[in-house]
Design a protein around this nucleic acid. Structure first.
Length: 282
DNA sequence: AACGGATGCAACCGCATGTCC
DNA sequence: GGGACATGCGGTTGCATCCGT
């Protein structure tokens, strides 16, 4: 006998969520907290799979989500973490408060990957694309969770390389907004090296990461209900229509509408991760 | 204005992992 | 120890929107 399906496929709605469904889910979770996802649809009056509810909540409805494009610091961090962790998006996302694995995965596939390719850097290995294969500098393939699937193997690359990629990305961004000519590319190696060195010294975030080379995997931080600095939620026991519409509006704009942006600017991001590393070293 | 390709993102699917009995 | 179940994760897909012609 095989495993039971996660939900009754019959009568389960699929596709985009409606505002009404969002309302039911938010109302239920804010009232009852996150419990057994399998039971959520029935209890919340939704014709959705529990899995779908969890995904909708974690990727879209959670009020502590940041929205909008990743900042430069976040992008650098994603590149560096990707070099260390490979496609383990949830681990990477755990280092970026307010960001989801799905969001980072999408951003990687649609933006960062292209940027790296444009720079001549392999987005998988973080090595230069035209570089001669060097056995001593090859990415080390660790046996991943699924040994039968090559694509799921964990790629561990030299940290230095990933920093180069991040530094070069920074350089590319700067050059794209300046009037630097294409001929400057021939000097890019030397310049990259200089940028890299300065980058390491001046970027405490990456310095911290480099020091904590084998930082333990981050456990997901518990999401507190309600958020401490979210007075509107603090004062609510249930969501009336007005409050709910306000929340849905906020979902359209992003974390700054909750006043969380001040909590998660680039400096705070650095502090957040440093603190996390220290806690996990204890 | 209309069309078609490109792009970005939300959502789904299947498998892996963790936990309980 | 092993089966059943819940949850998490990463790859993929589908669709809405954008943009160039």
């Amino acid at each position: 006998m095989g495993r039971q399906p996660c939900c009754d496929k019959l009568g389960v709605k699929k596709g985009p969520w409606t505002a009404e469904e969002d309302k039911k889910l938010i109302n239920f979770i804010l009232t009852n907290g996150q419990c057994c996802w399998r039971a959520v649809p029935k209890l919340a009056g939704l014709r959705r799979c529990g899995k779908s509810c969890r995904l909708r909540w974690t990727n879209y409805l959670r009020p502590d989500l940041k929205r909008g494009l990743l900042s430069e610091a976040e992008e650098k961090l994603v590149i560096d973490l990707h070099a260390r962790l490979g496609n383990r998006w949830s681990k990477i996302a755990a280092r970026l408060p307010g960001r989801t694995d799905n969001e980072i995965k999408n951003h990687w596939n649609t933006h960062i990957k292209k940027k790296l390719l444009k720079m001549g850097i392999d987005p998988v290995t973080h090595e230069p694309l035209n570089k001669e294969e060097n056995p001593t500098d090859q990415p080390i393939l660790e046996s991943g969770q699924n040994k039968n699937n090559v694509h799921q193997q964990v790629v561990v690359v030299p940290v230095r390389t990933s920093v180069t990629a991040a530094a070069t990305l920074l350089e590319l961004d700067n050059s794209s907004t300046s009037s630097s000519s294409a001929s400057s590319s021939e000097n890019s190696c030397n310049e990259s090296k200089l940028v890299l060195d300065a980058f390491n010294e001046n970027d405490p975030l990456l310095s911290c990461l480099l020091e904590a080379d084998d930082a333990p995997p981050r456990m997901d931080l518990p999401w507190e209900l309600p958020p401490k600095n979210f007075d509107n939620i603090n004062n609510m026991t249930a969501w009336d229509d007005e409050s709910f519409n306000w929340l849905l509006d906020c979902q359209d704009f992003g974390i700054h509408d909750f006043g969380f942006d001040n909590c998660f600017n680039d400096v705070e991001l650095e502090v957040f991760n440093t603190k996390y590393d220290m806690e996990n070293k204890q």
